[in-house]
């Protein structure tokens, strides 16, 4: 075997597997074409190779070669652009769009996961150098899993409680409680809302959650994911059936109206609870002194 061959192979393998492991978990947010899988597995392998090369390069005292890490970083930033572009392009074909905040979140995640693969490979090669291959694989797996675990953000269930409520009808205006959300002038549409429409209240647990739920990107993400998970009776040119998410200005409660394909209340509730809180939408006013004082 060539010099450092074993070390490289073990680290690249563990790094690539870590990347594959993260892809598998991600099925819901990812448009899972086999080609996208191929792209991301290959990029993950390239990232792991970069990470794995780090130790041999230092051993050979070729310090200048460390600059290849910066080239790698440059490449992975490209990944983010690629994901963002393709997701924004298919956005036009979505009945309920993801919203740019959600797209940005997914793009960022795909960039970050390459760095995670790189770090996993780097740690594996370090352990391999100091101990042996058994420890290297075990250590790499633990690091890969730990990194992935740390990247998990909160879900809606962590910041709010979800309630299924009936829609209120005031003449042609429909909404939830006192909040008017839509004016439906068409009899047929009104009857469908009356018969099949479902109202959902997402009640924030504290001021942080309130600010987060008020974010338009977060609302769109909730509506998009809900429409994917529960289905939505909607077609192009049928704007009267668009699911909407609007705030109750007094309480900060997020009200959602939707005509789902599957009117199973229990699972609608659970589906919303599982929806991720977007990194870019998360607000923490309570972390500041002013925010805490004002909230009293």
């Amino acid at each position: 075997m060539f010099k450092y061959g074993d070390l490289l192979i073990v680290s690249i393998l563990v790094g690539s597997l870590a990347r594959a492991f993260m892809l598998r978990i991600d099925y819901r947010q990812f448009p899972s074409f086999p080609h996208s899988y191929a792209i991301h597995l290959t990029l993950g392998m390239i990232a792991s190779t970069l990470g794995a090369l780090f130790v041999p390069v230092l051993l050979e005292e070729e310090y200048i070669a460390v600059t290849f890490l910066t080239i790698g970083a440059q490449q992975f930033r490209e990944v983010r652009n690629l994901e963002r572009e393709s997701l924004l392009k298919i956005e036009e074909t979505e009945l309920v769009p993801r919203g740019s905040a959600y797209v940005e979140g997914i793009a960022k995640l795909f960039e970050a996961r390459n760095y995670l693969a790189l770090l996993t490979a780097l740690v594996t090669s370090l352990i391999y150098y100091y101990l042996n291959w058994v420890w290297a694989i075990a250590g790499g797996a633990i690091v890969g899993y730990a990194l992935h675990f740390m990247m998990k953000g909160p879900q809606v269930a962590d910041i709010a409680t979800v309630e299924i409520v009936p829609i209120t009808f005031k003449g042609k205006n429909i909404g939830i409680d006192d909040v008017i959300m839509m004016n439906v002038g068409e009899k047929e549409a009104w009857e469908r809302w009356h018969k099949e429409g479902i109202g959902i209240k997402v009640i924030p647990k504290d001021e942080d959650a309130r600010a987060t739920l008020a974010n338009l990107g977060q609302r769109q993400a909730i509506v998009h994911d809900l429409s994917i998970l529960m289905g939505v009776k909607l077609d192009t040119g049928m704007q009267q059936f668009t699911p909407l998410a609007r705030l109750n200005l007094d309480s900060g409660t997020l009200n959602i109206i939707i005509i789902p394909q599957e009117p199973d209340k229990e699972f609608i509730k659970r589906a919303i609870e599982k929806i991720p809180v977007l990194e870019s939408s998360e607000r923490k006013p309570l972390k500041s002194k002013m925010g805490r004082k004002a909230a009293d």
Partner: peptide, 18 residues
Amino acid sequence: LEQVSMLLARLTLGMVHD
């Protein structure tokens, strides 16, 4: 009124408001 507004909404891909 109902019929015309519904048709116009479909044709313009818009929505009827009352």
